[in-house]
Design a binder for these strands. Structure first.
Lengths: 266, 266
DNA sequence: TTAACTAGAATAAATCATACATAATGTTGT
DNA sequence: ACAACATTATGTATGATTTATTCTAGTTAA
């Protein structure tokens, strides 16, 4: 039992954390190694310690450790070769849109280039999804979107977690309502992007009402089947947040949590 | 050694197939199981056979088999729970933009809903990427795009593999040139979409020259830094192919290989 | 009788430990 | 320079043990 062993969560802990499912050993190792790779602790092209060494480091059996490595391998983070060892792949090969990878990223210092990429992508994809949703959404889809909107409205402004959650649900519901499996699959990306937005944004509370009403406009456009309007409203909505955030990103390094604002983030 | 064992490629075989790297046992099992899941042989929510049974089926050790299951798990295809067994997850949870998953899909009957989704997504993403590329591309990026374009020009019209490869390289290069890591990461999606297009398209050879010149227009717009033009030209280019393909998709079931046309596919 | 709750057995994955196989890589000797 | 050999780290195999969950049966309470 050394430092690292102690650093990864042990067995059954804080059940309030995340999904509630107490993660298994291999999951904890995968998460820790994955985060070290994403954060650059293990640099691109660098060799990881050998399996045997990692077993010692994590105090785990080779089975559990290899399970973790295999998970990372499946996500494109590493590549194992006989005799040569296991290498960190170049970041362009990483499966950065993988749900788990995005989730791992949340705990570490964000890669601003990537965050900028996420916003740019949202700015393109979500308006298109909203447009499709206006055309394709079923009544069930609409109900889900509306429910999320209501949740945003009633969420206390100081309860960031609730605001973020409702916001994510709103946008995710629209992606799903587009009835396009590719867009629907990008819900993870969306959630991560929003999560970063909440963390990075500095424009203190600015005008939550404006953001909220922008969400309302999108909902209304979709409900009324105003296809082009849905597109434009969504673009405007994300534009509000992205300008803000891109400004922060441009500034270079990010100044911690900024638990301040919940406005202008989506 | 039973039927299934014989069905998955044995050790070093046809080196012309795919990446050339003779796949390992776990990779072959993962591929086989993955394709069965994608194809619906193992239905959503269905239980897979137990590890022990799968070991018998594939004639492999638990180690290799568990490695395969873990890979599938990492890609969101399955979910293992103690005592309850291993279950196929709902398709919305699948990591369908994963390079390997997309590659597995190529060998099986395509899910037309998903293919339609790919095209719709391309129609949204690639014009945006082209627009960005016109703004951001380095001279190196341009050189790669041009090289791919040249490869498309000199490729014999009857050499579908060469045409597809050059086509993929052209579009991938533009995604990369956008300097957006999210778009760049979608190169796998693009490659898969194009691959399906080549397989499904029926409009016999139509007008390869037209498609080719459309590619040229995109290249020129990017090179000349005509931002909006790049967007529109790319949209037009993909539009040519998508109309074609969506017509096929609408018809319902797809009539095999259709080794006919190489035009109007991108 | 029915409902709910509890203790225990059964099950399948999770983990551990060890051994051997295989393919790169390094090294040595000619 | 080249071939033969030893080395190394991952790949595969096997069996034992642990753990969490589900199923079952048995008990208790309404």
């Amino acid at each position: 039992m050394d430092a690292v062993t102690a650093s990864i969560g042990q067995g059954k802990q804080d059940p309030s954390a995340g999904d509630g499912a107490t993660s298994s050993l291999k999951d904890r190792i995968a998460r820790d190694l994955g985060q070290r790779i994403l954060a650059g602790t293990y640099a691109q092209h660098a060799l990881l310690p050998t399996e045997a060494e990692l077993c010692v480091i994590y105090g785990a059996s080779r089975t559990a450790l290899r399970d973790a490595l295999l998970t990372l391998s499946a996500k494109g983070l590493i590549e194992a070769r006989k005799r040569a060892g296991t290498r960190v792949r170049v970041s362009s090969e990483w499966n950065r849109l993988d749900a788990q990878v995005l989730e791992w990223m949340r705990d570490i210092e964000p890669d601003l280039d990537f965050v900028r990429g996420l916003i740019e992508a949202r700015l393109v994809i979500e308006p298109a999804a909203a447009q499709l949703a206006a055309k394709m959404a079923t009544s069930g889809d609409l109900a889900v979107i509306e429910a999320a909107y209501e949740a945003m409205r009633i969420a206390p402004e100081d309860d960031l977690a609730a605001c973020l959650d409702a916001d994510v649900r709103f946008h995710t519901a629209i992606l799903r309502a587009s009835r396009n499996p590719v867009f629907a699959n990008l819900g993870n990306m969306l959630a991560a992007a929003l999560s970063f937005s909440f963390r990075l944004t500095t424009s203190a509370t600015a005008n939550y009402q404006q953001t909220l009403s922008a969400h309302g406009d999108v909902l209304e456009a979709i409900r009324m089947r105003r296809v082009d309007d849905a597109h434009d409203q969504m673009k405007a909505l994300i534009g509000i947040a992205s300008n803000d955030l891109l400004a922060v990103a441009r500034k270079g390094r990010h100044q911690q949590p900024a638990a301040a604002a919940k406005a202008d983030t989506s």
